[in-house]
């Protein structure tokens, strides 16, 4: 049967058109609604795996978000935190989670800022910023693919 003969038969022609449209619809929907240029979100940060102690650079949106898979290590599944380094003892460590409230007597802005500074104390030698510093991605010597 030739193509022309197929289209002469009304029922067959309708079925072909219908099949073609069924195929076309998801393509149009995909290109119109789902194929969007991804807008970069977050910033590249030096991260530290709290489980396997690896360090790497990763685009992080919200490090506190437990549901974001980017906040977990690709190697061991451990929780990632921002990497910091003590400039005195060269100890590298993860910054603690920002899940604790400032103490009740931290009322004034200075008290709150001091509380934030104390989160960056070196766990090894108790140095405080600026002798401890949040690392930038270019400061990591051995970058793991986290």
């Amino acid at each position: 049967m030739t193509l022309a003969a197929l289209f002469r038969e009304r029922q067959t022609r309708n079925r072909i058109i219908f099949a073609a449209l069924i195929l076309l619809l998801p393509i149009v929907v995909y290109f119109q609604f789902f194929r969007k240029k991804p807008i970069p979100v977050g910033a590249e940060r030096a991260v530290f795996c709290t489980k396997c102690k690896s360090m790497g650079a990763k685009i992080i949106v919200d490090i506190e978000d437990d549901k974001d898979q980017r906040n977990y290590c690709k190697i061991c599944g451990g929780r990632l935190r921002y990497a910091a380094k003590c400039l005195k003892c060269k100890y590298e460590f993860p910054l603690p989670a920002a899940d604790s409230a400032p103490p009740g007597d931290a009322k004034h802005t200075m008290d709150k800022f001091r509380f934030l500074r104390d989160r960056e104390l070196c766990p090894n030698c108790r140095q405080e910023p600026p002798d401890t510093a949040i690392m930038t991605p270019d400061q990591i010597e051995k970058k793991a693919d986290l």
Binding site: Q11, N14, R15, I17, F18, L21, I22, L24, L25, V28
Partner: peptide, 14 residues
């Protein structure tokens, strides 16, 4: 026919 109505609907959706 039913299939013609379907075709019209598909065109509308597209």
């Amino acid at each position: 026919t039913l299939i013609e109505i379907y075709i019209a609907m598909m065109i509308f959706l597209i």
